[in-house]
Design a protein around this nucleic acid. Structure first.
Length: 625
DNA sequence: GCCGTTTTCGGCCCGACTGTTTTCAGTCG
């Protein structure tokens, strides 16, 4: 409901822009859409009390009534009215970079462009050249943008042109390292939604502070000519934008190799070293967070831009920007400095989304990568992993973990080599054999047990009783209706031997939505039963997602951050899971993977009749526990 | 259409880059 309504409001905002309505009204609707998106409660429930809606920042009398209308009728009359005035294929064209509402409106009303195909036709026939403010060059830029957009749609999994976090991050790191080799004295880092840990990335922002002007020029030259650049969108002394394509996508996740290349826009911003903090803050965003920060600065008689926080000596905006007039900034060198000068504690990038973070009294206590000491979800060659038991254990040890759980697939996951009961017995004994030999790490024998469509588990209870840890996960039947999905997950959580609910919704980013369960019911059951909800760290999953983590944290749940290890490199995904956890406000004490060893083992044992975990020795076959 | 450490009415973030312009509009982040 929240998501559907938020989308509807965003659409209204977009349609208003296209129709040339008051731009402030349009942005008010976009703000309302974000407010609804950020709600952790079900909007249907909140809307029962109009005063509660009005108390939400960004919702006023008019938008609150539209929310109520949507909750009651499933539609907003004004939305339908806007929709009837715009050709159906037009709004999507706003996704094309460089094509904004004004230009789109112009070519719609003056050149009859109504959708992608008529736009391409108009470009091919040259009918756009000569319209007001549209010369040869502008039209050529639009043409290139459209072709790039079309190729992205053809190659991307869903046509949004966004890259998963885990695809974008390594690219950004390669570019940062490459630019660092060009300008050895420069400070270089990535910013943007990548630094905030969003699950998908629209473009990659790189920030550089060279020591000299020559170094800056060298950086720009290197950036615009680096391998993979297929087009330069713009390039100036302080900013350059390029299109990079193609980029290898992962084949392991079943993306068709012939389509396994996606392009991405990359921006380089060059700033003076003294502005590093203000620039980092500015280019990290989010946009909405920045707006809130600048408003706060203004309210305090200051003005904030990417060069620093300045005294506001020019309220009318008549003069040149302060940094061009030699005004000395109040703060600029570090982000902490700027936050402090605005009366704020340091806010980590992951919480800069304008979702109430400016009202926080201090820096939120968020989990860090180094807090993670246990991995509770890992596969070996026994099912679909690539590591043997001992290899897995050694990799875990190298990473400083004190607990590693071997949790291969259960029998229903046939394509993933799920273990029959007989094979499970052998496997558990093999794991215990390894556990008895290695030192410095506790090795647990467990299973990632399928949650069947009706919520029952894939092994009988006596078999589950042999194990040290049970991760119960949905793998099939992911298209259930909300009621069935909720019943299914809650039933699995209530099973007395389940420790962790693995990738709870089964969603895959840009690929499939996952179970539409009532998450509030899932949180409530998990809290009551002491079951940890997993944040699966693989960048194709990140399940729970950030908003779900926030809901679970607010509901008082335990969470697990697991890398669902299938090969050694999967341990590297941990950072994406931790970023997602931080976006949801998770602190270390609520994350079972961050607990001291004994506390973790005791918690696991509480679901195994309180017996000591790990068990040692052979399984007493045929004797139900 | 929202909102108030300057405002209950009149504002509403800031700067860079580009192209079509002799002073600025559109777009982006």
């Amino acid at each position: 409901m929240n998501e559907a309504l938020s989308r509807r409001l965003f659409e209204m905002s977009r349609l208003m822009e296209l129709l040339g309505e008051d731009s402030f009204r349009a942005s008010a609707h976009a703000r309302a859409a974000r407010a609804v998106e950020a709600m952790t409660d079900d909007v249907a429930e909140v809307a029962a009390d109009r005063a509660r809606l009005l108390a939400i920042d960004g919702l006023g009398p008019k938008t609150a009534d539209k929310v109520i209308e949507f909750v009651r009728t499933g539609a907003i009359a004004e939305h339908a009215e806007f929709l009837s005035r715009v050709p159906p294929g037009l709004p999507e064209l706003m996704d094309i970079p460089g094509l904004g509402p004004k230009t789109l409106r112009l070519i719609w009303q003056s050149a009859g462009v109504t959708d992608l195909s008529s736009l391409r036709k108009a470009l091919a026939e040259g009918t756009l050249v000569g319209l007001p403010r549209l010369g040869e060059k502008s039209v050529e830029k639009i043409r290139q943008s459209v072709e790039f957009y079309v190729s992205q749609r053809a190659s991307g999994a869903d046509g949004t042109g966004r890259l998963p976090l885990g695809v974008a991050m390594p690219i950004a790191e390669r570019v940062v390292s490459y630019l660092g080799s060009v300008a050895t004295g420069a400070t270089i880092a990535f910013a943007g939604s990548l630094r905030r840990g969003k699950e998908t990335i629209g473009d990659i922002d790189i920030l550089a502070a060279p020591r000299t002007a020559d170094e800056g020029k060298a950086l720009t030259a290197a950036f615009t000519s680096m391998p993979g650049v297929v087009g330069i969108i713009s390039s100036g002394p302080t900013r350059s934008s390029v299109r990079v394509a193609p980029v290898e996508a992962s084949s392991r996740w079943g993306i068709d190799p012939s389509r396994a290349s996606v392009g991405v826009q990359m921006d380089l911003k060059i700033v003076p070293p003294d502005s590093w903090g203000a620039a980092m803050m500015y280019f990290t965003g989010s946009k909405e967070h920045n707006v809130a920060m600048r408003e706060r600065a203004r309210a305090r008689g200051m003005t904030l831009n990417e060069y620093g926080l300045f005294p506001d000596d020019d309220p009318d905006g008549k003069k040149k920007p302060p940094h061009n007039r030699g005004v000395v900034p109040i703060a600029s060198k570090s982000e902490s400095e700027v936050f402090a000068a605005l009366g704020l504690a340091y806010l980590p990038p992951e919480c800069r989304e304008d979702q109430g973070e400016l009202a926080l009294a201090g820096t939120p206590e968020l989990i860090r990568i180094e807090d993670i000491r246990a991995e509770l979800h890992a596969h070996t060659t026994a099912s679909d992993g690539r590591l043997s038991i001992i290899e897995l254990v050694e990799r875990a040890k190298e990473r400083g973990l004190h607990v590693i759980a071997v949790t291969d697939h259960s029998r229903s996951s046939a394509v993933a080599g799920g273990l029959s009961i007989e094979r499970l017995v052998e496997h558990v004994e093999a794991v215990r054999e390894v556990a008895s030999k290695v030192e410095g790490i506790t090795v647990l024998a467990g299973s990632e047990v399928d949650i069947l469509a009706d919520g029952s588990l894939d092994y009988p209870d006596d078999v589950l009783g042999w194990l040290d840890v049970v991760v119960a996960s949905p793998h099939a039947a992911l298209s259930q209706d909300p009621q069935t999905a909720t019943r299914r997950l809650v039933r699995a959580i209530r099973h007395p031997m389940v420790n962790v609910l693995g990738h709870p919704t089964g969603r895959q980013i840009l690929r499939r939505p996952g179970l539409p369960a009532d998450m509030a019911a899932v949180y409530a059951a998990a809290r009551e039963c002491g079951v940890a909800l997993e944040i699966n760290t693989h960048w194709i999953r990140l399940d729970l997602r950030d908003t779900h983590v926030r809901g679970a944290v607010e509901a008082g749940c335990l969470l697990a951050i697991n890398s669902d290890v299938h090969e050694a490199s999967d341990f590297e995904n941990l950072r994406y899971g931790v970023m997602t956890a931080r976006r949801g406000g998770l602190a270390a004490d609520r994350c079972v993977n961050a607990w001291p060893r004994e506390r973790l083992l005791e918690w696991l044992g509480s679901k195994r009749g309180g017996r000591r975990v790990p068990s040692a020795g052979p399984i007493a076959r045929g004797r139900p526990l």
